[in-house]
Nucleic acid binder design. Structure first.
Lengths: 337, 337
DNA sequence: ATGAAAGCGCTAACAG
DNA sequence: CTGTTAGCGCTTTCAT
């Protein structure tokens, strides 16, 4: 593991740094360096385990072959899964990934973006909480793609799912299964993704001739939802609301809600049916197994990288850079049928 | 977002790059640069949003203020949680983290380690699959700490849990609850962590006067455990084995096992009790809620960073660099009582 | 107190 | 085909 540098191998082999650098970067042929010399260089490099210093290389090249990933929280299984696919795909293209969690905090996100820019990432993939800096990135023409969440007013690359459709399908599923009074528990947020989910719910109700009463909708504080859940559930289930089903807009809300329902000894699905947007690892084992609108995490991750690398490397191939993917309803027991 | 460089601010302010650099690195006072000059520099930098190029800085300084994290799989909630804590703690110390998944593949892990070294990470945190390269790192005196898994023959920093104790407690819990024939389902592996888990199981049995029959122990292929699970379970549950309980050594084995038990219509815990080492997000909601030996992911992450940074920065504070943490038994319904 | 200059390891014109 | 040279942006030694 003794460190060896480019100049060392040049010296040892009595060649110039240029020749060595060229060969090591696979530009030997195009620069007409003799096969023999090339072989000597390659062999020597391999034998001595030569490893170019990527900081030097990056500084010189003006790029780092690194993608930055900014997400709300890596310990959220949803983002962790996306991260995994991003990582895999990035590697295919020869990129590493640096990640950071914003914890849904705008300032942190801002700091993270700049910190990554300082570190000379070649591009960014962001599940953003904060519009302002996205706008700046966009104006600066820096390569990035938004995932999971996007800002309709800003023209950017993005990969999201059709939230409206997903939640509408969920709500309709409940309705189709004979539920009459469907509640909605979400997170208080200005994010378009959450807005769309609410719209999907409302649309399903109105289209089926149901009225939307505010009391049926609860939007909890993202940092305090666990405490607020009990009240929300109680309120929904008891009269006058007397709901017979609840749509949850995230997996953690669904888990938390089910926990409270159990504490309150409310039978799921006989008394109250529940359905979740996206899922946790073991939702199929839960009592009862939870019906879910599953997001295509693999596709989200792969698409994001594909779009990003395309932009970074400025390939001519015009690819679709605004992708709206679809969720898939996994029907289990929590809605009755 | 117009890029501004050190030399720009020096020129604008009619100063030398040295002065600017010094001040920006908080070494103004110690180099007796006038308060006034310092203020001018700082103000100008802030106003123009100066952001040092970390590649250049890193190249010059010979360090990157980045920690590399290599784990088997970021989409495994266990590692994702650890990653989250590592990230948080690293930020406290001013480090970023670069992560990669080895997918339990020795070659990938090797490649990852070298790739990270090339990228000049200052230190590494590794949940390793492959002893060989750990040995090299160790010989090269490169700062790193092993987590989750360690190699008893190599002297390194590490943070692990007491696997033997954890599984022993699990097994005893089953025994205490009146189970007579306890099975063991694990992953086929040479890793010490898994060996210890098996030892814990065996120890609990022998100490309580039970005999260990090979047929009671199943070690599945890590890449094919889902397919092998059905056979394993069937085999254990039917005569002559006729087990009344099973110890699973990972959360995904437990989930998979429970899935099969349900398919086989075997009642848990009345017919067969199960217990898991570590847990998934919703193990408390599962039917039945699964008793678990929970690992202290926060402490694992925090300790690892603490030890690593200590070593990187060569602080004199002698800290314990071989930590064995303890799991905590969360008793739920899957074992009966 | 401040500045000139060298150097970190690598790439890339350009000249030969 | 190969070597010289400048330069990426920053830090730091050593004069002044």
């Amino acid at each position: 593991m003794k460190k060896i540098f480019l100049k060392d191998i040049a010296k040892e082999l009595n060649l110039s740094k240029t020749a060595v650098s060229l060969v090591l970067n696979n530009r030997g042929d195009e620069n007409k360096i003799s096969k023999d010399t090339q072989k000597r260089i390659l062999d020597f490099a391999k034998k001595n385990n030569y490893r170019p210093n990527q900081m030097a290389r990056g500084l010189s090249l003006g790029k780092s072959e690194t993608i930055g990933l900014i997400i709300p929280n890596i310990s959220d299984i949803f983002y962790a899964r996306i991260a995994h696919h991003i990582e895999l795909k990035a590697k295919e293209f020869g990129y590493n990934v640096v990640f950071s969690s914003s914890n849904e905090n705008a300032d942190t996100e801002k700091e993270l973006i700049y910190s990554m820019l300082n570190r000379q990432v070649d591009g960014l993939i962001i599940a953003s909480t904060n519009e302002e800096d996205i706008l700046k990135l966009s104006e600066a023409n820096f390569p990035f793609v938004l995932i999971d969440r996007h800002y309709p007013e800003i023209k950017t690359n993005y990969v999201i799912v059709d939230n409206l459709e997903g939640v509408k399908n969920m709500t309709n599923h409940l309705l189709k299964n004979g539920r009459k009074k469907v509640g909605f528990i979400s997170i208080k947020s200005q994010l378009d993704a959450l807005l769309q989910r609410r719209l999907g719910y409302e649309l399903a109700l109105t289209e089926s001739g149901n009225e939307i009463k505010a009391s049926i909708i609860k939007e909890l504080d993202p940092f305090n939802y666990q405490n607020e859940m009990k009240g929300a559930i109680k309120n929904m289930v008891k009269e006058p609301s007397g709901l017979d089903s609840i749509v949850f807009t995230t997996h953690y809300l669904a888990a938390s809600g089910l926990r409270e329902l159990k504490l309150l000894k409310i039978e799921v699905p006989s008394e109250v049916a529940i359905i979740s947007f996206d899922e946790l690892g073991a939702f199929d084992l839960v009592d009862p197994p939870i019906t879910t609108s599953k997001q295509p995490v693999d596709d989200i991750g792969n698409s994001a990288v594909e779009i990003l690398v395309n932009e970074i490397e400025n390939k001519n191939t015009k690819i679709e850079n605004e992708r709206v993917l679809h969720t898939k309803l996994l029907i289990r027991k929590s809605c009755g049928a």
